[in-house]
C-alpha cells in the first residue's frame, strides 16, 4: 500500500498534514504505538524540512509487511554539506522559521534517531531525496 502526498512549499501553517494522515492510516492498520510514534516523528521532521528547505515536493509512504518506507523528494537548492547538516545544532533556516519553533538544527539528527535507515541523495541546485525506513 502506498500513500502519495503533495507537500506545499508555501503553506507552513498546514505543514504536517501528510504525517498526520499517515499516522491515522497506521493506527487503522493496528501498527504498534511505539512504531507509529517513530514513524510520525521522523516523517514530520522530514515533511517540515521539505517545506522550509526544499520549498515543497512530494512524499510517498509505503507500508510493506516488514517495514515502512517513506520517500520525500523536492526540487529545492539541495544540501551543500551533508556532514554539516547532520550535526546537531547546525541549521540554515531563516529567522522566520526559527520563530515558528523550527530551525534548531535537530531535524536530520532526529530523523536518523527514529529510523532504522536514512538515505539522502542531494545535488546542489537540483534538489534532495530523503528515504526513511522503519522496521515493523
Amino acid at each position: 500500500m502506498i500513500k502519495h502526498y503533495e507537500i506545499s512549499g508555501t503553506d507552513f501553517a498546514n505543514g504536517g498534514e501528510a504525517s498526520s494522515d499517515f499516522k491515522t492510516v497506521l493506527k487503522k492498520l493496528g501498527v504498534p504505538m511505539d512504531v507509529i510514534r517513530k514513524v510520525s516523528i521522523a516523517m514530520y521532521e522530514a515533511e517540515i524540512n521539505t517545506i522550509i528547505h526544499g520549498h515543497g515536493g512530494t512524499c510517498d509512504a509505503e507500508i510493506m509487511p516488514d517495514r515502512v518506507v517513506i520517500t520525500f523528494k523536492d526540487s529545492g537548492p539541495g544540501i551543500k554539506d551533508i556532514d554539516l547538516a547532520m550535526q546537531e545544532g547546525y541549521s540554515t533556516a531563516t529567522d522566520q522559521i526559527r520563530e515558528l519553533g523550527f530551525g534548531a538544527g535537530m531535524g536530520l539528527p532526529n530523523i536518523k534517531k527514529y529510523t532504522d535507515d536514512m538515505q539522502i541523495e542531494t545535488s546542489e541546485g537540483k534538489g534532495t531525496t530523503v528515504i526513511l525506513t522503519i522496521k515493523l
Partner: peptide, 16 residues
C-alpha cells in the same frame, strides 16, 4: 510553551 502556532498542535499530535 510560549509558541501558539499550528505546529505546536502538530508536534503534540505526533508525540501523543
Amino acid at each position: 510553551s510560549g509558541l501558539i502556532n499550528q505546529q505546536v498542535i502538530r508536534t503534540a499530535e505526533m508525540m501523543d
